[in-house]
Amino acid sequence: MKVFTCLKETPSRDTRYELSPDSSWIGNAEVTHEISECDEYALEEALKLKEQHQGEVVLLTAGRAESEKSMRKGLAMGADRGVLILDRERELSSPYRVAAALEKVLQDQEYDLILTGTQSDDYGYAQTGPMLAQLLGLPHATIVMQIQVQEDRGSVRALREMESGWFEWVEIPLPAVLTIQAGISQIRYATLRGIMQARRKEIRKIELGGLGLDLSSMPHLEIERLYFPEQTSKAEMIEGTPDEIASTLVDRLRREAKVL
C-alpha cells in the first residue's frame, strides 16, 4: 500500500492576523507556520493505513522552502520520505495551479491512494483534492471521516460527511483521491526516536519552474482585496463584574426579550 499525502503549510491556527498595506495579503511579519489542520488528519489516516497494510507513506508539498520544517514533522510522525515542489514566488496561489503541479509530480509515481485535507487553513477553497483527481483521471471522495481499504476488491470504502448529521459509505476503485475532514481522530505525536530518524529521511526538492507548466494558461483566482468582516453588530455589549453582568443580562432577558 503506497499512500501519497499532500500537505500544505499554512499560518498557525492561533495567528492574530494583520493585513498588508495594500490589503492584498496578510501582513504579519513573523507568522509561524504549521501543517494545515485537515492535512494533519490526512497524514494520520495515511499512517494508520501503513500500520494496517504495510507499505509506504510519501509526503507531497508545494510551498516555500521553509515548508521543509513542517515536512520534517510529518516524517517524524512516521512518513517515509517527502517531495517538495519549491514555489518560491507564490505562483501556486490558485487551486487549479496547485493541482496541476501536484499532478505533474504524481504522473510518474506509483501509488494506491492519495490523501489530502478537505480544505486548507489559509484560502480554504476545498478544491485541490477533487481537481487533482480529475486531472489524474482518478475517482475521488471528499469530506471523509473513515477509510477502509478493501485490498481483495482493489477498492476503498470511505465514510463521507453529509448534511444534518447524515453520513454515507461510498466505495470507489483504487487508485483514488480522498480528502479528509478535521477532527476525526487523535493525531499522534512524534516520538523522540521519530524526530531523530526524520533528520535522515529524504526530502526531494523540485523547482516549480522545472515542471514545465504553463501556469498563465490556467484558471486563476485573483484576490482583489482582503478585509476584516465588517462589525455589523447591533448587540448590546454588557460590561461589569461577572455578577453585574449576570444581573443586567437577566434583567434584559426578562424585560426586553421577554424570554424569562
Binding site: Y17, P219, R225, L226
Partner: peptide
Amino acid sequence: RQMFRNRINADVRVRSP
C-alpha cells in the same frame, strides 16, 4: 468569501474562460 479560518473576508475575481 472568507479565508484564514473565517477570520478575513476576500473579494475574489476569476481569471479564466
